[in-house]
Amino acid sequence: MAQPALTARGALPVHLRRLLEFSAPVPDDLCLDVAGGCAELTDALRERVRRVVTADAPGDPCSLPHPDRSFSLVTCRPSLRSLGEPAALVRELLRVCAPDGRVVLAELVRGDVTATGHAAPGSSVTALTGLIAAAGGTIGRVDAFTAERPLDPWLARTDAAAAGRIRRTLLREVDGGPVTGARPRVIGGELWFTQSWAHVAIRPQ
């Protein structure tokens, strides 16, 4: 059952804290954080590793400006399909990962509501692990779980028109309208929704 993503002020939400622990950063790690879009998690990584290089600036994540085998930890979130051709991106992440390092992917597999107000066609865990294997990665650990979170903080980075469409879509579902896969409900007068995540740790073959 999904657990509400309640946090103390300044603390990471449950799904991000879970990703941080799953990544298992250590003080000697040189980390590449690709398209994170979450300064809180990047800052938390910086507190645990030797150095974090971010790849959030505009550019092609399928052609990273780093030499082969440069990083002991490579993190990528939140969605391969939003960053480019998924298999090509996985191959590029593996290219910059040291032989004894690991790539950690955080992928939404359900509950990704797009700016149009419709559910995105999420990947399944099986499809995700199959894609990784086909791209040349060796799968280590997998963590699949659900996280329930308040809608308004998630919409804070979305333009007002798109945020309005998403809110209306989820409210219609609460009232018995079309199902989005986000399982919205009202808690204490606030609209919440549920996302299903898969965290996968992989290494070069």
Rank of each mutant, 00 (worst) to 15 (best):
L64E: 03
D100R: 15
A147Y: 03
P153M: 01
P86K: 13
T138W: 02
T158N: 02
A106H: 13
P58Q: 02
L151I: 01
L131Y: 06
S70H: 12
A134F: 04
G140N: 08
T146C: 11
P86D: 12
P99M: 07
S72A: 09
L131F: 06
V109E: 14
L94I: 11
H118D: 15
L93F: 03
D112T: 00
A160N: 08
A120I: 00
D152R: 12
A88F: 00
T146M: 10
R77C: 04
S79T: 11
I139H: 02
A161V: 13
V125C: 11
I166H: 03
D68S: 14
D143Y: 01
T116C: 05
L170Q: 08
P150I: 02
V113Q: 10
T129P: 04
P121R: 15
V109I: 15
G130A: 09
R81M: 09
P67W: 11
L89G: 11
A120M: 05
T75M: 12
A87P: 05
P153K: 07
G164C: 12
L64G: 05
F71S: 09
E173M: 04
A119V: 03
V179T: 14
I139K: 04
G111W: 04
V103P: 11
G177V: 04
C62D: 05
S79I: 04
C97D: 06
R168F: 05
E173I: 08
T114A: 13
P67S: 07
L89N: 08
T75D: 00
G140K: 05
H66E: 11
A120Q: 10
T75Y: 00
V74H: 10
L131W: 04
P58E: 03
D112L: 15
L94A: 00
T146E: 15
A135N: 10
L108R: 12
R167Y: 10
P78D: 14
F145D: 02
P153F: 00
V174C: 15
R102G: 07
R102W: 08
P150V: 04
L155E: 12
P86W: 06
A119E: 13
R91A: 14
A162M: 09
S63N: 09
A147N: 10
S72I: 12
T116I: 04
V179P: 08
S124L: 01
L80M: 07
H66I: 10
H66Y: 15
T129I: 11
T75N: 00
R167S: 10
I166Y: 03
R102P: 08
L170H: 04
A135Q: 11
D143T: 04
R95F: 13
S124Y: 12
G101I: 10
R110A: 15
A133W: 06
A161H: 13
R167D: 09
H118C: 11
G101Q: 12
P61H: 05
R91T: 12
A88N: 04
L94Y: 02
G140F: 01
V179A: 11
